[in-house]
Amino acid sequence: MHKIDMRSETTVAFGISATLSGTTPSAGNIVDVADYQAATFLFQTGTVTDAGDATGFTVAIQESDTTAAADFTAVADADLIGLETALTVTSDASDGIAVGCVGYRGSKRYIRAVVTGSTGTNAVVNGVWALQKPRYAPKGDAAINIAAT
């Protein structure tokens, strides 16, 4: 089997680490994808005391040309590889699991994940972005955190 080196072409960016409580959305870190051709959000749970009502909690990927929080909008399904609905958690027993991942292929410079609970949700969630195929390699191991403006 042919093996290739993706480590030299991968940068990890902090996505989100949040404690969900009810229906209040939790916006993750803003990630600059200007120098990358591939971005994948990897989502996992921590402790899930309550997933919430039957719809559980969900992830939405958002994009923007600026770092202004108000400028972020939902990414069209055509610009995602995989569906955000695959990242929905509805079971109270979903503690410490890798939920899944979704790729971004849109054209905006900045992206982030937003996790929203439903009535009764009480859970810890985490996610990272794997940024790959950089314009110039090798890239650093970790991306800088960007605060919303």
Rank of each mutant, 00 (worst) to 15 (best):
A76T: 04
A18K: 13
E84W: 00
T49P: 00
E84N: 08
K3H: 11
T49Y: 08
A123T: 05
T90V: 15
G22L: 04
Y36S: 06
A78H: 05
D65M: 12
N29D: 06
A130D: 02
S64Q: 05
A38N: 13
E84M: 06
P138D: 02
T11Y: 01
V12Y: 15
M1H: 13
A27F: 11
Y104H: 09
G56T: 11
E9C: 12
T45F: 05
A34G: 02
Q132P: 07
K3T: 13
Y110C: 03
E84F: 00
F14Q: 13
G120N: 00
V31D: 09
G22I: 04
D71Q: 03
T19P: 04
T45D: 05
S8N: 14
Q37V: 07
G96S: 10
C101Y: 07
T88Y: 05
S91G: 09
T88C: 03
S107L: 03
F72A: 04
A76G: 06
T24C: 05
A76F: 04
A13W: 07
A69W: 04
S17G: 13
M6S: 14
P134S: 11
V89C: 00
A54I: 14
S107G: 11
A34H: 11
L131F: 08
A113E: 07
T40W: 10
T88R: 14
Q62A: 02
